[in-house]
Simulated scan of single mutants.
Amino acid sequence: MPQMAPLNWLALYISTALLYILFNSLSYFESKYYPINSQTSNSKIMYNWKW
């Protein structure tokens, strides 16, 4: 029935959008952040610029 075609497109759009949001949120929250502990952050780095 051609009258029901817009409902199928709407359902397809909603399911695709939900899948996209789900994939992006899982990808964002699944990543872990490991801070880098560097010893050079405490010491002062001197640059000798000669222009």
Results as ranks from 00 to 15, higher is better:
M1L: 11
Q3R: 14
Q3I: 14
Q3D: 13
A5Q: 13
A5K: 13
P6C: 15
W9P: 04
W9I: 13
L10V: 14
L10Q: 12
L10D: 11
A11K: 14
A11N: 15
L12A: 13
L12N: 02
L12M: 05
Y13K: 11
Y13D: 11
I14D: 06
I14G: 06
S15E: 07
S15M: 09
S15D: 04
T16Q: 06
T16M: 05
T16V: 08
A17C: 04
A17P: 00
A17S: 08
L18K: 00
L18Q: 02
L19Y: 01
L19V: 01
L19W: 01
Y20K: 00
Y20P: 01
Y20G: 01
I21G: 00
I21H: 02
I21D: 00
F23Q: 01
N24Y: 03
N24V: 04
S25K: 03
S25I: 03
S25G: 01
L26R: 06
L26S: 05
L26N: 07
L26E: 05
S27N: 08
S27P: 00
S27R: 10
Y28H: 08
Y28E: 07
Y28Q: 08
F29G: 01
F29H: 06
E30Q: 07
S31C: 01
S31I: 10
K32W: 02
K32T: 07
K32M: 01
Y33M: 01
Y33T: 06
Y33E: 02
P35L: 05
P35G: 05
I36Y: 08
I36A: 08
I36S: 05
N37P: 04
N37W: 03
S38Y: 04
S38V: 08
Q39F: 07
Q39C: 02
Q39L: 09
Q39K: 11
T40V: 12
T40S: 13
T40R: 10
S41V: 15
S41E: 13
N42Q: 12
N42M: 11
N42W: 09
S43L: 12
S43V: 14
K44D: 06
K44A: 09
I45Q: 12
I45D: 10
I45G: 04
M46C: 06
Y47C: 11
Y47D: 08
Y47T: 14
N48D: 13
N48L: 14
N48Q: 13
W49R: 15
W49G: 10
K50Q: 14
W51Q: 10
